[in-house]
Design a binder for these strands. Structure first.
Lengths: 336, 336
DNA sequence: TTGTATGCGTTATCAG
DNA sequence: CTGATAACGCATACAA
């Protein structure tokens, strides 16, 4: 008979207790900061625990405490490379608070209902919608009682029960339009992404509103239909093909950087337009790629790090559960 | 007293059982496919369950079955936009099998040890390393008995206990070099990323080896040190500044597309080099951005979708737990 | 300070 | 086919 029996299962608190000659509750105390336990017991437990490689089972703890420290993050828009930044900063913010992200991919084979159901059944503490194209009716259905609380990041929520943390569209568009107007542009155009999301973002609306103050009555829309550089290329290509140079816009403001990069690309490569002399372009997001010398894109930086932190503060109940608008920063570059 | 008491807690199997007049075990059976239960009971249970909005608690199930259907995905390289594609396809592949990804961000405030510990404590079924710069010694420490099995995606594993699914570096580099050689290039250079990862990827090694067959003895290395377009820009800038045109390489093969885009950018924008006449550039990954007309980058497409599916098959024990090399596809564009 | 009983919501196993 | 007992690993409340 071997001295040490190698067990296939993980060592539990009971294993440690037996080995240390105490009850399993004492073991639990050793791992609960601030619980009353003698220094002697604690040391004895820790020694054995370390030797046996014991780590509390968070699953069992969650079942008992009814809190998992897990947050479902729903994403359905992987064509937009800026999502990676959002994920980076959101996961970082979550992890500094001991929370972890459950990344749920919404797509062809996995719809919103599935995602909500899955998150709910796994008892996540909250669900974060990451700039995805949710319809209000979809959200409404996910608001059953007993369901994890919903939050929206990087998009304004229209539902007061679902707080959002986003970049202030009004403030940002004022800055953008003022900048463009001061540069002398007077024939703006606006490129939109997915219809449902575009209206929710409100960027187009505010953009047009501020131009009106500058005497510009109408801002033509160029609809890409998706946050995808190809969609942007297609949309601008069609516009440029069907519009005589004299009738064209002189500056294109895009709903985000993905669209802007695609636009610059087509305008320059396929139509030989100079940026910004023939067509100025402005983005939105402040993605790192916008800063590439080849694009040199003027853009409005969303304070993603702060947005993520703010959202997490809300999750942790250290801040009122209520929508927040944060100001960003206009980054003027050569494209305007 | 109200007729219906709205409970704050979620409805459990017991609630349904009482309401349906059966035992809770019968309720469980109704939700367990293939279990023996009378059609009558099943219907009765389902009716009540639906009315009460009952959904099995997956946490409790996991505790009992000792399997969570959760997979930890460790990422430490968010500057590389191709990670988004990896995440998209990996989560999709996981979800089609009923698995869900726990995204763990490794960075300044959360190191590898933390990540492994967290994943382990949460009882994930497996841990997937997503092309991150893990040192072999780090991995060794994470291989304690009772720990979730490790897998590596998009990078070759040197440890036989940790299977990997990756794109065949040798095959791909042969294709790349043959293509470049046939185009007449004879002064190749190679741009690397993080040192530890570069050696693990083996792309540089195979690249040099195939050039040797073409009579090219040495391939200068341009070290970016990170998969970051800025790092690439800096590295190439320094090289071009310090190297006379006559002494320069005529084609730059980059360890991945991120580096390649940065390289094209600097070469063209800052040094006025024409691509490919003055300097040809080749990437690796097959990222969508490489296809932008402005870059028109020749690249080697990794079969990420297939790689993700293969990895998941391994996770599901439908395929031998052993490293797999998959062939990709050379996409020839204007940059070479 | 420490041990005991009980509960979290399921599944596994066995008896009827 | 159905009900009952035990177990999963931990936390909470209480008693000693």
């Amino acid at each position: 008979m071997p001295e040490v029996i190698v067990m296939n299962r993980k060592t539990t608190a009971t294993d440690v207790a037996i080995e240390a000659g105490v009850s399993k509750w004492t073991v639990a105390r050793a791992f609960t900061p601030g619980s009353s336990i003698s220094e002697k017991s604690r040391e004895a437990v820790m020694l054995i625990a370390d030797r046996l490689g014991y780590r509390p089972n968070l699953l069992a703890r969650s079942l008992a405490t009814k809190t998992t420290h897990q947050v479902a993050v729903l994403v359905d828009d992987f064509a937009n490379f800026h999502k990676l930044v959002s994920l980076e900063l959101l996961t970082a913010a979550l992890q500094t608070e001991g929370l972890v992200a459950m990344l749920i991919h919404i797509g062809k084979h996995f719809d919103h209902a599935n995602a909500f159901l899955n998150a709910d059944q796994r008892q996540v503490d909250a669900i974060v919608l990451l700039g995805t194209a949710f319809r209000d009716e979809t959200l409404q259905g996910a608001m059953k009682p007993g369901t994890p609380p919903l939050y929206v990041l990087a998009r304004e929520s229209t539902n007061p029960d679902i707080p959002s943390v986003s970049c202030d569209a009004k403030v940002s568009m004022r800055e953008i339009v003022n900048h463009l107007a001061s540069k002398g542009y007077r024939r703006p155009g606006f490129m939109t992404g997915p219809t449902s999301l575009s209206t929710a973002l409100g960027r187009q609306r505010h953009h047009a509103a501020f131009w009106r103050k500058h005497g510009v009555k109408a801002v033509p829309e160029i609809a890409a239909g998706a946050y995808d550089r190809r969609a942007s290329e297609d949309a601008l290509r069609e516009y440029l093909r069907n519009t005589q140079p004299a009738d064209r816009i002189d500056v294109l403001v895009c709903e985000n950087d993905v669209l802007a990069l695609g636009a610059i690309d087509v305008a320059r490569t396929e139509f030989g337009l100079r940026i910004p002399q023939d067509l100025a372009v402005c983005g939105y997001d402040g993605n790192d790629l916008a800063g590439m010398p080849i694009f040199d894109l003027t853009t409005y930086e969303q304070p993603m790090a702060e947005m993520a932190r703010t959202l997490v503060e809300m999750l942790m109940d250290r801040r009122e559960r209520r929508s927040v608008l944060l100001p960003g920063r206009l980054i003027v570059r050569g494209s305007t």
